[in-house]
Amino acid sequence: MYDDVLFEQRLNEFKPEPLITPIETNAEVLEIPMVKEDSNNIDLAKANYLNVLDNEEIKKASEDLIREYGVGTCGPRAFYGTTDIHLELEECLAKFLHMEESIVYSYGFVAISSSIAAYCKKSDIIFVDEHANFPIHQGLIAAKSKVVKFAHNDPKDLKRKLLQVAENEKRKSRKFLIIEGISWATGKLCPLPDFIEVAEEFKMRVFLEESYSFGVFGATGRGLTEYFSIDPTRIDMIFGTLEGAIGSIGGFCAGSNLTIEHQRLSGSGYIFSASLPTYLVKVVLKSLELIGDKPKQLAELAKTFHQFLEECKFHVESHPEAPFKLITATPKSDEIKIYQHCKENGVHFIHNDNGLMINLNINLLQEKDKLDRIYRVLKGASELIN
């Protein structure tokens, strides 16, 4: 009791000098505007496909973990950064994906780029989709391999490029194929069975990036291997972020025991980064536990929403079952008209170089009034350009 009082007293008396001298400035403080969901505003910019961000069970489980483990390990996985919760998640992910083993990174971006760089070397040839996402491109830069791009989601063009390389190849090189389950740039679904057929014909290693198909596609959310009824062991690596459907932070990679063990020794993002905070690990575990039939519900909402957009004569790039809808318009000024009209009427989503991106949430199935309002506003926006 005395020690506690003394500790509190010394803590209150501790007034350290600042490490640096604060710089006085009259510059205006800029704030990033946030959309606060209320009766006037609907947030379709946030990626919360399975509505796990506000789940009370997940919040309580995370709070309990913080009280027991703290907010972070303050060290890489190999240096005081691994807890039993990390190992539990890796075992759970491997079992969920029907792979031998998995590895968890503290940041989704480096999970993708580090996984590529850990295996692909300067003497290798990597075949990659022309619309591959930024983390994949960073992995290619780190790997320093020869890169060959093929037309978006086109297995036939991949085969043509492979034959061209074979004709000009003086010595045999290892070949890798990197594809995205759902393209972040276009929202289109990868024709995985056709790509695997080509890859197996040419004896290529296949890396599948599943940031926007993991937790969404397939009856239980296992991704494209479940959606297409493909044996996951035909894929060398499945990797992606945990920041889409699962509602946490971090990334994962799953594959054979040998594949994952190699990353523990050479995955830069794994070796040099502090491990994923334990309470965020628990978010993933709890989300997977509660996933149930949510992927099926989301697929139905996505198809209904897609059909509505097409009836409004929007040009929808994304796949009918994609968890986000990507709308493009010509001229580009029409995209601004749509965006501004919806914003003024309290429906908020993303406008970027790819087009207008609307993130879905299965909770809209229960909130009919909110969904009807979204439909009314989008219908009004379509009438401005058609």
Rank of each mutant, 00 (worst) to 15 (best):
V35D: 13
E17Y: 11
A322R: 03
Y227L: 03
T233S: 15
M357V: 14
H86R: 06
I112G: 02
L162F: 04
F349Q: 00
G267W: 00
E261M: 07
K332V: 09
L285P: 00
S318P: 03
K36G: 03
Y270R: 03
D369H: 14
E311Q: 10
K294L: 11
C253N: 10
S275W: 08
G380F: 07
A118I: 02
A199D: 04
A329Y: 04
M34H: 12
K59P: 00
D353M: 07
I385M: 05
S115P: 08
L6I: 12
C190E: 04
K161I: 04
E56F: 12
L30T: 11
P191V: 02
L371M: 14
Q307K: 15
L384I: 15
E56D: 13
K296A: 08
C190I: 01
I66K: 15
A143F: 07
G250V: 04
I66W: 06
K122W: 03
L285Q: 08
T186F: 08
I136K: 01
M357Q: 13
L309M: 10
E63V: 09
S115C: 12
L97Y: 06
V110R: 08
E226K: 01
I23H: 11
E88M: 09
K286H: 02
N51K: 12
D3T: 15
L309F: 07
G292D: 15
H348L: 04
T241D: 07
K188H: 07
T186C: 07
K294F: 10
D194L: 11
Y279V: 12
I85Y: 10
I238R: 12
A199H: 06
P33L: 06
S39P: 06
N48T: 11
G81F: 02
A94N: 05
G380T: 09
N133P: 00
I103E: 02
I179W: 02
I32P: 07
L371S: 05
F96R: 01
E130N: 04
